[in-house]
Write a protein that binds this DNA or RNA. Structure first.
Length: 104
DNA sequence: CTCTTGACGAAAC
DNA sequence: TGTTTCGCCAAGA
């Protein structure tokens, strides 16, 4: 009966979809809320395979230091998406967790 | 079943 | 202090 009708991946989708514009969270936090406190790495793996036109606000997920984990072009795209929501982000791709961290 | 893969994170160096 | 190594675990092959 308690079949995993919703996989870890699906729970991650729902959690990220609930992050309001102008706020951010971390991979570890998403993993925790999804029920696997040490599966932060899996969250990143899931986001890496999102289709291009996805409606999921994947750009609101940052690493433990409030920084962008993507290299090159991905870095630029995520930084621009965050700035478009009014989030201040420096050239290193880091935001203030204290200011923007989201909790339910 | 085993083995591999990582948009992570914390601990060692 | 910055850099490297190691542990973690969902998913797919």
């Amino acid at each position: 009966m308690d079949e995993p009708t919703d996989s870890f991946r699906q729970r991650v989708f729902q959690i990220i979809a609930a992050i309001p514009a102008g706020s951010i969270t971390t991979y570890g936090e998403v993993a925790l809320l999804a029920g696997s406190p040490r599966a932060a790495r899996q969250v990143g793996g899931i986001l890496s395979r999102l289709p291009e036109g996805t409606a999921l606000p994947w750009h609101r997920v940052l690493n433990r230091h409030g920084g962008i984990s993507l290299p090159g072009e991905g870095f630029r795209r995520q930084k621009a998406a965050l700035e478009a929501e009014g989030i201040e982000i420096n050239d290193q791709g880091t935001v203030s967790l204290e200011r923007y961290r989201w909790q339910w």
